[in-house]
Simulated scan of single mutants.
Amino acid sequence: MSAREKPNKPLVGILWMLATTACFVAVNIIVHWLGDQVPAAQSAFVRFLWGLIFFAPALARILRQSFPREVWALFGLRGLLHAVAVGLWFYAMSNIPIADVTAINYLNPIVVTVGGALLLGEGLAWRRITAVIVALLGALIILRPGMREIEPGHVAQLGAALFFGGAYLAAKKLTDYVPAGTVVAMMTLVVTVALAPVAIWQWQPISLSETLWLGAVAVFATGGHYCMTRAFAAAPVTVTQPVIFLQLVWAAIAGWTIFDEKPDPYVILGGAIIIASVSYMTWREAQLKRRVTPPAPATKI
């Protein structure tokens, strides 16, 4: 095997992606369980403060480096977009069923695909346009406007998908200049700083237990991205991408068994349609040997 040839171990990649879905569902369960006991911005701030502690050694080295002004601007833009997305996501996860949030979250790669075409000149061929339309139909099936009440949490999660997508596009541009580890570490710093004023403004007493649970959120989120990286290193994304749909299944089971949220077949169907369209675009781009549409979990932390 040549130095540039990547290993192809489908079973290993699938197992790592299963671990990825388990980590992200653990994040969802904890945040959903904490609910609105702590304001969304405060919860997000505490979670990223834990992340800042994890990245402190790396940040001490990174901040001593000299970056071009454009890179600093991208660090700031990516962090601000991600901060808004995370705040909206925490609000949504605290106020609507866990499966609804998970299903709508699959729209993130669609936002990136459209944004990449409009902002980065990556093109939007008719197959991708068709896949985007199918994904939007999936979102309509989930929300069913006129047939069910659209709660503020649903609107917040749609906004989160939009801002997560924008943050991913900024991060993608940043990887042209700096390593991925630097992008993640600086994102953690900027998000923490950006959330601080809102968190302080809304601050409510927080118990040691809640603080530790939010620390667990940071651990599971970091673990999820580590497992995802190992999955992509072991097998092509076209093999591991479909496994991501199981996250919706785990979320629906968790909502039912832990939170007494009966599974909504329309949410499952809509989520399946969205992930199918994302998987098709991923497969098609692999056939064309180009990478545009990101894997579903890669757009969030």
Rank of each mutant, 00 (worst) to 15 (best):
L34N: 00
N105W: 08
T238N: 06
M1F: 13
R284K: 02
V217N: 02
H82N: 14
I206T: 15
G138S: 03
F67Q: 09
F24V: 01
A298F: 11
S94F: 01
W201Q: 12
L214H: 09
C23Y: 04
A139Y: 05
T282L: 12
F75D: 07
Q241S: 15
A272R: 01
A83M: 01
T238F: 01
V219N: 05
A254N: 11
I253G: 06
I29L: 11
G123A: 08
L52T: 04
D176V: 05
A171C: 06
E151K: 14
G79Q: 09
L214P: 07
Q287V: 08
W126G: 03
F45G: 03
I104N: 01
L49S: 15
E70N: 12
T192K: 05
V292K: 11
G138D: 06
G121S: 09
E261P: 02
V71W: 04
Y106C: 01
V239F: 05
V46H: 05
N28S: 15
P39C: 07
E151S: 13
Y226D: 06
A252C: 07
A26T: 14
T182S: 08
Y168D: 10
A276Y: 02
T211H: 06
V112M: 06
G270V: 07
N105H: 14
A216T: 11
W250T: 13
I62M: 07
T238V: 12
M186L: 14
V178T: 13
W50I: 04
S207K: 04
V25A: 03
L63N: 04
T240S: 14
F232L: 15
V27E: 01
P236W: 07
L49H: 04
V217C: 10
L77N: 03
T21V: 15
T282H: 05
P297R: 05
E285R: 07
E70H: 12
V111I: 15
M186H: 06
A221V: 13
T113G: 04
V112I: 09
A161K: 01
P265H: 06
L34I: 12
I258G: 03
L248C: 07
W16N: 10
V84G: 06
V267P: 03
G215Y: 07
S2D: 13
Q287W: 01
W126L: 13
A185H: 09
L15N: 09
V191F: 07
E70W: 02
N95S: 15
L77D: 00
Q157S: 10
A252I: 02
R291Q: 14
L143T: 08
M17K: 08
A117P: 12
T192C: 09
A231N: 09
R78P: 08
F67P: 06
V190I: 15
E122D: 12
V12G: 04
Q42I: 02
Y226V: 15
T238S: 14
A221Q: 11
P179S: 09
L143D: 10
I110N: 03
T238W: 04
E285M: 06
R290T: 10
L124A: 13
P197K: 01
Q42F: 10
G166I: 04
I141R: 05
F54M: 11
F48M: 13
L120S: 12
A41R: 08
S279C: 10
T293P: 00
Q204V: 13
A286M: 05
A286T: 12
R78A: 11
T299F: 02
G181V: 10
Y177H: 15
G159K: 06
L158G: 10
I98K: 00
